[in-house]
Amino acid sequence: MKISKEKFGQSVDALSSDYRLIAPVSEAGGVNYKAVKSFSDVKQDYLNSKLPPKSLFFPQHEKLISYVKNGKDVTVKNELKVEKTILFGVRPCDAKGLLLLDKVFKNDQYQDPYYYERRNNTVVIGMACKTIAPTCFCSSMGLSPASSEGADIFLIDLGDSYDLEIITEKGKALLGDLGLSELTAQEQALVDAVKSAQTTSQVDVSTITEKLDKMFDNPYWENLQEKCLGCNTCSFSCPTCHCFDISEEVCQNSGSRVRTWDACMAPLFTLHGSGHNPRSTQKARWRQRMMHKFNYFVHNNGDIACVGCGRCIRSCPVNMDMRQIIDGVNKAELVVE
């Protein structure tokens, strides 16, 4: 079913007193998700954002608690703040990335309220990809440029209008009755074409988890990381990477405990107070990155923690390519004990 962009924009703008609108906008260095005042400010033609929209739920830097000390006493305050949000224009890879993060921030024992309060107060409007980058490989990760998984409402851009599909009750409740109209035959053909599109780049992850079960001590890891700078860009730009640090920001008697993105590629990440470091080499850290995404995460959560968005490939300063590394795992010879 179809709705004109104008009418859709009016519907979204009409909600602006209750919801802030976060959407792709052009800025120096690329497209990113930012708060916009009106739907007319939203960038409509974009490949994907430079950074995934995970920061909306898991900011790069956030205050968890704050406190004021008074002599020997202290007053502690919870700093969790939530705004109702419409997150517009999320690509299929990133929408799936949010579903994977959902599994991280809630486990068998704990639920992270900072992440979940924001997540529960956000409606995700997904958008199919009309342009596919050479680094995209979502089709290999069980997705496609038009998969609606993880979106509450899913759109396909038809020029002046959208093909609109309500995916969840949350999506249905947001926009109410929109007065959708039927697609023309020409529009239906366009929708069909977008829905049948696949990424040109493909990798085989069909047996990677089982293979990695047997690869912890494999020599494959020895040379893999040689050119890695340990800059963390791959992790920061990854829609599923979620590691963080908690530290203190203090000014005289008051302070806050803050959470910032961290990454398994950094040596300090696992350094003990004693000086011992269980992952003291970049080799061990790359192995952890691959094992976590393609093995540990699968065993713990039932999914591979990679969505094929290709950001790590596009942003790596030394051209490390996840697809080649996956391929290398597939081709690695198993060491017989």
Partner: peptide
């Protein structure tokens, strides 16, 4: 292990799974 969150979320104290 070096730990931060203590909740199985921040990602640094794993041994395998």
């Amino acid at each position: 292990m070096r730990m931060k969150c203590g909740l199985g979320i921040c990602g640094r104290c794993n041994i395998g799974t």
